[in-house]
């Protein structure tokens, strides 16, 4: 289908985007890679009156490593994350998870910032940033602020961003300890039915599609910290989750899957 009629402006910097969002109110939407927003507009599940296209804001693109912190611009594509030799060396979990998103055409256009701002509990990259204990950086009319990934996802497709705020970047620690990403799906290019990301040998564990937001598996992290083996730690992976029911799976199936995948991820990460 064709999207509903919509206005269009370009914002070539974060500042310009904040100004445009302020001018056009809450009917305006940022357009980054468009790999979530355009499908929703085609199905008319989203009908913004104005698109603010930040796709050319080159100051929001790129990966830099400074000491033990990796800073990534919000507009950096999944494909750029996947192929960055620097990122593969400094934070292999994030580079690998990016390579598991959708298909190559989606990865060429979709962006890290768009994936986080979209806040889909079934998405891959939010889980990676959560497991890594990342920090998100946003700019709005009141200036810039940092939001811990654990505070960012507030509900189904909802984030802590205000309507006139632009996500400008993400910071994750350099993380080369044992890691794993287990993504289980039944169809090519699909979202995870359940996914589990593990960073630093089990110090950070997060779950995909086990509730209305991407979830940090605090019970598993605590069990690993307390010396539990992979099987025992994985046994508490369901704690604090509220798995959804859909065409793919009911909650009981997801609860089984999350234990199996958590154990596999912990073993692969050397926990």
């Amino acid at each position: 289908m064709i999207p509903a009629a919509v206005g269009y402006v370009r914002a070539d910097s974060a500042q310009a985007a904040v100004a445009a969002l302020g001018e056009h109110g809450d009917e305006a939407k940022l357009l980054a890679g468009g790999q979530s927003l355009i499908p929703l507009m085609r199905l008319r599940l989203a009908r913004p009156s104005m698109l603010v296209d930040v796709g050319r804001a080159d100051d929001l693109r790129g990966i830099s490593i400074d000491g033990d912190a990796v800073s990534i611009g919000a507009l950096t594509s999944h494909s750029d994350l996947e192929h960055s030799a620097d990122l593969v060396a400094a934070c292999p979990l994030l580079a690998h998870v990016a390579s598991q998103v959708g298909d190559p055409a989606v990865r060429h256009r979709g962006t890290l910032g768009g994936s986080l701002a979209h806040a889909d509990p079934a998405s891959d990259l939010p889980a990676a940033v959560l497991a890594l204990g990342g920090t998100l950086v946003a700019t709005g009319s009141g200036g810039s602020r940092e939001i811990a990934a654990t505070d960012f996802f507030t509900g189904f497709l909802e984030s802590a961003l205000a309507v006139d705020e632009v996500l400008t970047g993400v910071r994750v620690p350099v993380s080369t300890g044992g890691w794993s990403y287990q993504k289980f799906n039944r169809r090519a290019q699909d979202w995870a039915i359940v996914g589990v990301a593990v960073a630093e040998g089990g110090a950070g564990v997060s779950l995909v599609n086990m509730g209305s937001t991407p979830l940090r598996a605090s019970a598993v992290e605590a069990a690993v910290a307390g010396g539990a083996g992979a099987a025992d730690a994985a046994a508490v992976a369901v704690d604090g989750t509220e798995p959804p029911s859909d065409n793919n799976a009911d909650p009981a199936y997801r609860e089984h899957l999350v234990r199996v995948l958590t154990e596999r991820a912990l073993v692969a990460a050397g926990a």
């Binding site: 468009g34 355009i38 085609r42 190559p104 256009r109």
Partner: peptide, 8 residues
């Protein structure tokens, strides 16, 4: 590669 139906 890009999906031309998912790009304006």
């Amino acid at each position: 590669s890009a999906k031309s139906c998912t790009m304006l």
